[in-house]
Simulated scan of single mutants.
Amino acid sequence: MTAHEERALAGVQSYSRKMLAVYDLWILGVVCPVVWHCSRGTMAAHYARNVGKRHLDIGPGTGYFLRRTRFPVERPEITLVDLNEDVLYTASRRLAKYRPSTFRRDVLRPLGLGDSRFDSVGMNLLLHCLPGDLTEKAVVFDHVLPHLEPGGRVFGSTVLSHGVKHGLLAPKALEALNRDNDMSNAEDSLEQLETALAKRFSEHRITVRGSVALFEAKQA
């Protein structure tokens, strides 16, 4: 296994089926609002505002938000991408009524999705799990651009270490999670995210809630 692959796998190994079984309750229901000061309701509204009829979700977690959002069509086309087989299994089962396509991919490399095009691409709570700083991991935006329809949206959220106002519990949580390789965002900043989006998209917006930056961007 290459050093790159080891680093990429480190950020997803903690998401076992056992962990995913409590993810919605613990991570989305407790950690996000209490530690990061951003509720799952806020993230759900972010999905509802941006999701399209042909949607690619990178790092879908348990499929919680996709299961609850209101799509603009009755039968959306959903594609799930993750490096972790347990994530793909869990999310695809939860979204079974939509018959999603699933692909095991390292998103820091070209996605290899052929001629597939999407109206929206979601990256919720993804970037802070990828190795490197935001300047490096922003390559994921480059990898989705060839698959984005004109006017399509890229949106998501990420926990940042710099440029945001942390609550009392966040600094120690960030230190521990980075030490244990559950996160890789010790150097991630709001400025880096702003630069990465401005460089690649004709329009973008970032909304900060506590330690979390919610972003949305599109090409003309």
Rank of each mutant, 00 (worst) to 15 (best):
87 V>G: 11
156 G>L: 05
116 S>C: 12
126 L>P: 08
107 V>P: 01
104 R>E: 14
183 M>S: 11
106 D>C: 08
85 E>V: 08
166 H>A: 12
157 S>H: 04
179 R>D: 12
164 V>I: 12
147 H>R: 13
140 V>I: 14
177 L>A: 12
117 R>E: 15
114 G>P: 10
122 G>A: 15
163 G>I: 02
176 A>T: 09
146 P>S: 11
105 R>L: 01
143 H>E: 01
82 D>M: 03
101 S>H: 12
153 R>H: 11
188 D>C: 08
88 L>C: 12
97 K>R: 15
98 Y>C: 11
111 L>C: 11
165 K>G: 10
89 Y>C: 10
121 V>A: 03
133 D>V: 03
148 L>H: 00
131 P>N: 04
125 L>E: 10
183 M>P: 02
181 N>T: 04
138 A>K: 09
93 R>M: 14
160 L>E: 00
162 H>F: 06
192 Q>G: 06
156 G>F: 00
98 Y>I: 06
136 E>D: 02
156 G>Y: 02
138 A>G: 07
125 L>K: 03
103 F>K: 01
184 S>M: 11
83 L>G: 11
88 L>Y: 09
165 K>P: 10
98 Y>V: 07
100 P>Q: 05
114 G>L: 06
114 G>I: 08
160 L>C: 02
118 F>I: 02
190 L>K: 03
95 L>V: 00
187 E>I: 05
90 T>H: 10
174 L>S: 10
185 N>E: 00
191 E>N: 02
154 V>G: 04
167 G>D: 09
120 S>P: 01
150 P>Y: 07
112 G>N: 08
172 K>G: 10
120 S>A: 15
115 D>L: 08
185 N>M: 00
99 R>E: 14
136 E>I: 05
170 A>I: 10
125 L>T: 05
96 A>H: 09
179 R>Y: 13
188 D>P: 08
100 P>S: 03
154 V>F: 05
101 S>E: 13
152 G>N: 04
112 G>E: 11
122 G>N: 12
108 L>E: 02
181 N>K: 15
102 T>F: 02
117 R>H: 08
84 N>S: 15
155 F>W: 09
149 E>V: 00
174 L>N: 10
160 L>N: 02
99 R>K: 15
142 D>Q: 13
89 Y>D: 14
146 P>E: 07
190 L>E: 03
193 L>G: 00
176 A>H: 10
100 P>M: 07
155 F>T: 06
138 A>D: 06
138 A>F: 03
163 G>Y: 01
193 L>K: 01
114 G>T: 04
122 G>Y: 11
187 E>S: 07
182 D>V: 06
118 F>S: 02
158 T>N: 03
177 L>Y: 15
106 D>V: 06
168 L>N: 08
143 H>I: 03
117 R>I: 07
142 D>W: 08
184 S>C: 15
87 V>C: 12
163 G>P: 04
126 L>H: 10
169 L>G: 13
138 A>M: 04
172 K>V: 14
172 K>L: 15
158 T>Y: 02
110 P>S: 11
115 D>N: 12
163 G>S: 02
111 L>G: 09
159 V>D: 01
